[in-house]
């Protein structure tokens, strides 16, 4: 009965949503919208070829600061709730073949993530996606080599160090923006460079790097504190 009622309510809400979203006008009701400006002037105004990155880390950089802070808050919360003093004793990991294969593969995963982070203003991707890939390396280490390997290579203290460095880098770029352009997170035109080259697009590159470090280390900490107790039993 309860399931039936829930299904009816859900179906009703979904139907209402479908009908209403269908009736949204095809084009924006305002003609002077930001999206038109973004499409036309993004390269000349920011020097970034990737419009999405330009919007995320230049026009609406404050939102990105808030969003990466949400991840920071999640990490702090999870560490607060799951923190244990005991160190994990992990399994020996998977077989030798898997270990050797991933030993060769892992540097390339790292390289890919660094590429995605640093080329955020040129190609799809950016600090967030690259940072998640960085965190995946921790997962590979924990599953393939056992979590004590991960602990010895990258202890949680070092991850915290990387995470706060990333956060402070983001904040620092914002404050440098005050000094150079007069507004927080402003994109200094002196750093803009030639669009299309790697060192261009002003503050977008360091912000990407900051977000990448923050997100990567943060998600690695989350996964690490999740598995602690589990692997201890094996």
């Amino acid at each position: 009965m309860k399931v039936f009622l829930t299904a009816i309510i859900l179906a009703f809400t979904g139907g209402a949503l479908f009908v209403n979203l269908g009736s949204i006008p095809d084009s924006f009701l305002l003609s002077h919208t930001a999206s038109r400006f973004y499409r036309e002037a993004v390269v000349t105004e920011t020097g970034a070829l990737n419009t999405v990155s330009a919007i995320l880390y230049d026009f609406r950089a404050f939102d990105s600061l808030g969003e990466s802070t949400v991840i920071f808050a999640t990490v702090s919360g999870i560490v607060l709730l799951l923190s244990r003093k005991t160190l994990p004793v992990s399994s020996a990991g998977l077989s030798l073949i898997v270990k050797r294969t991933f030993g060769i593969l892992t540097p390339f995963v790292f390289l890919l993530s660094v590429y995605i982070i640093l080329h955020g203003h040129l190609s799809p991707g950016g600090g967030f996606q690259g940072g998640v890939l960085l965190a995946v390396i921790t997962i590979i280490f924990c599953i393939i080599y056992g979590s004590s390997f991960d602990l010895s290579r990258y202890p949680p203290q070092r991850k915290t160090l990387i995470e706060t460095t990333g956060a402070l880098l983001f904040l620092g770029v914002g404050i440098i923006g005050i000094a150079l352009t007069g507004s927080f997170l402003g994109n200094p035109s002196a750093w803009r460079g030639v669009p299309g080259t790697l060192p261009s697009a002003g503050s977008i590159v360091p912000i990407n790097l900051g977000v990448g470090l923050k997100v990567g280390a943060g998600l690695a900490i989350i996964f690490y504190s999740m598995i602690q107790k589990t692997l201890k039993r094996q």
Binding site: H32, T33, A34, F37, Y38, D58, F59, R60, A61, F62, D63, G177, T181, G182, S183, F184, L185, G186, N187
Partner: peptide, 13 residues
């Protein structure tokens, strides 16, 4: 009023 990133309201925050 404070314009973050130096962009005026419809463009920035």
């Amino acid at each position: 009023s404070y314009h973050l990133s130096g962009w005026l309201p419809p463009l920035g925050i």
